[in-house]
């Protein structure tokens, strides 16, 4: 009945023999790149739940008797193109970043940022166009969802500008903005500054943009096709 810690029981160590066992890969990974990847992955998972909830609410609401879709303002096509451009510019920026071409890198970063800002302005314009067409927020269920979906999506796009600004700042000063208390990060970065040093952060930034672009396309198609 009574069982003892056996050496064969893997993680529980070899207590019975007084042997020191530290399993390979046990803890202490503390790699800032992997850490950010996990954090961004988790963030995207939570955001997926936000948009999944919105889309399922849309689908449920759509099935109810009084559903009336709203016409979509044409400027959305332009906005979509702007978001695609922003996403593409961030992706394209990876190459000069690796090559150490700071000038090209920062140009592409600015292109991405400005395209994103233009997207936000465009979405605001779309709201005004909707209103001008006679579709206020409470006009039809479809119109309500248009405002709701663009608002929630737009806020997330705006949130993306925070890491974008940090990237720019880091590129300008040649190192990551100081984070008090983030000792491990400072230690592990090993002076890998300059354009190549921003590659991991840039990649995550690009992933975030691609994600929001994907979400936008899903939302747009949803509204367009129903």
């Amino acid at each position: 009945m009574t069982r003892f810690s056996q050496p064969s029981r893997g993680s529980r160590g070899a207590v019975a023999e007084g042997r020191l066992v530290v399993l390979p890969g046990g803890g202490h990974r503390d790699d800032p790149v992997a850490r950010s990847q996990i954090a961004v992955g988790l963030l995207l998972a939570a955001m997926t739940m936000v948009f999944a909830a919105l889309v399922s609410a849309y689908l449920v609401r759509m099935d109810l008797s009084d559903w009336r879709a709203a016409p979509l303002p044409p400027v959305l096509w332009v906005n979509t193109a702007l978001l695609v451009a922003a996403s593409a510019a961030l992706e394209a920026a990876l190459r000069p970043a690796r090559a150490g071409d700071t000038r090209r890198l920062s140009t592409l970063l600015w292109v991405a940022g400005l395209a994103t800002a233009a997207f936000i302005v465009g979405q605001l314009a779309a709201w005004f166009q909707m209103r001008a067409m006679g579709y206020g927020v409470a006009a039809t269920p479809g119109a309500s969802f248009f405002y709701l979906l663009t608002l929630v999506h737009g806020v997330h796009v705006l949130g993306g500008l925070v890491p974008w600004v940090r990237l720019l700042a880091r590129l300008r000063s040649g190192r990551e903005p100081e984070e008090p208390g983030g000792r491990a990060r400072a230690r592990d970065r090993d002076g890998d500054d300059g354009p190549a040093g921003v590659v991991p952060a840039l990649r995550l930034c690009a992933v975030y943009w691609h994600f929001l672009l994907g979400v936008w396309i899903v939302l747009y198609l949803l509204m367009l096709l129903t």
Binding site: S11, R12, V22, R35, I38, L42
Partner: peptide
């Protein structure tokens, strides 16, 4: 709660000291 949750999960996955496997 989302900011907290991100932090707790990332910390557990990334910051364990040497020898602290998940199953320990």
């Amino acid at each position: 709660a989302t900011m907290g949750g991100l932090n707790y999960i990332t910390t557990v996955l990334q910051m364990r000291t040497r020898g602290m496997t998940l199953m320990r």
